[in-house]
């Protein structure tokens, strides 16, 4: 049984981070991960359950200078429908389109998907290749303190992040993609909907006259966290996307990942798929 003693529903960010000070708090947003995980006994709900859904500062999707800010409470459905996201970040829309089912998308939040830190988290791969950063808020003294860190350094292990217990993820910031930016996402599973990835791949970069630069490659479900693939990025950086480059990059990708066997697939199959799908995505980019 859970040890739940208090339920809090703060209406401001200050109140929320104040409550987080003692650290013994479980944060509830969409609840689509928390509920099944706590029922299955994989997550223990702490003394205080804090519902952050009534905090206006955590919502909304806006353009702030050269960055798109997505509030931690933005649901997958909201993200998919938002004109800013649709115009500038189609790869994120694509990933959301493979996220669970409509019912879950209506409740699940971006912040929740990030803090759940699943190696197979569907939004994490596009966010990684889009150079997203997370903003964290806390109240070390009597004043609200915010700081950011790149998403690529945020994940530590399955379900584990660098967020400290007294911090709250407030938003994600994504730099506006430059001209010539291309980004692709592919999720592979047993079925097209309501599935956990066997593997997922995100690839982004700037394509000018057939040359790919600023390359970002990220893989899901092949390591304890979603990962950037630095060797594969190196194999592609500044290269013309011809058949030889694509084959080489796909081979580097296959050798770079160290997946495990689990109920969804064997490590061997995952490595094969990293190769085949990387190759497929790059070929599509080259042909586009």
């Amino acid at each position: 049984m859970n040890e739940l003693k208090h339920y809090l529903a703060p209406t401001s960010l200050d109140q929320a981070v104040e409550c987080l000070k003692d650290g013994d708090v479980t944060i509830l947003a969409g609840g689509t991960d928390l509920t099944p995980q706590s029922q299955a006994g994989r997550v223990k709900i702490k003394h205080t359950l804090m519902n952050i859904r009534h905090i206006p500062q955590l919502s909304g999707i806006t353009l702030e200078g050269k960055e798109i800010r997505i509030g931690t409470l933005a649901t997958i459905t909201e993200i998919m429908a938002h004109p800013l996201v649709r115009q500038h970040l189609p790869v994120l829309v694509d990933a959301c389109n493979h996220f669970a089912s409509d019912q879950i998308r209506n409740a699940a939040t971006l912040g929740g998907n990030i803090c759940n830190a699943s190696p197979a988290g569907d939004t994490l791969i596009p966010l990684l290749v889009l150079d997203a950063s997370v903003e964290l808020a806390s109240m070390p003294e009597a004043k609200l303190y915010r700081h950011s860190m790149p998403l690529s350094t945020f994940f530590v292990g399955p379900g584990k992040t660098r967020r400290s217990l007294c911090e709250l993820v407030t938003c994600v910031r994504i730099p506006l993609p430059a001209e010539g930016h291309v980004a692709r996402f592919h999720k592979l599973g047993t079925r097209p909907a309501l599935d956990i990835s066997t593997i997922s791949i995100g690839i982004a970069g700037t394509l000018k006259e057939g040359i790919l630069s600023n390359v970002r490659v990220a893989f899901g479900a092949v390591a304890p966290t979603p990962v950037r693939a630095s060797q594969t990025e190196k194999a592609l950086e500044g290269q013309r996307l011809d058949e030889a480059t694509i084959e080489k990059a796909a081979a580097v990708a296959r050798d770079e990942v160290k997946p495990i066997d689990d109920v969804r697939a064997s490590a061997w199959y995952r490595k094969e798929m990293i190769h085949n799908i990387t190759k497929r995505i790059l070929s599509h980019v080259a042909q586009a």
């Binding site: 089912s101 079925r191 097209p192 909907a193 599935d195 956990i196």
Partner: peptide
């Protein structure tokens, strides 16, 4: 039993 749940026991869903 490795997958006593609907997450890992995969029933066919509508799009399939």
């Amino acid at each position: 039993m490795k997958n006593p749940n609907f997450r890992d026991y995969k029933l066919v869903t509508a799009p399939e």
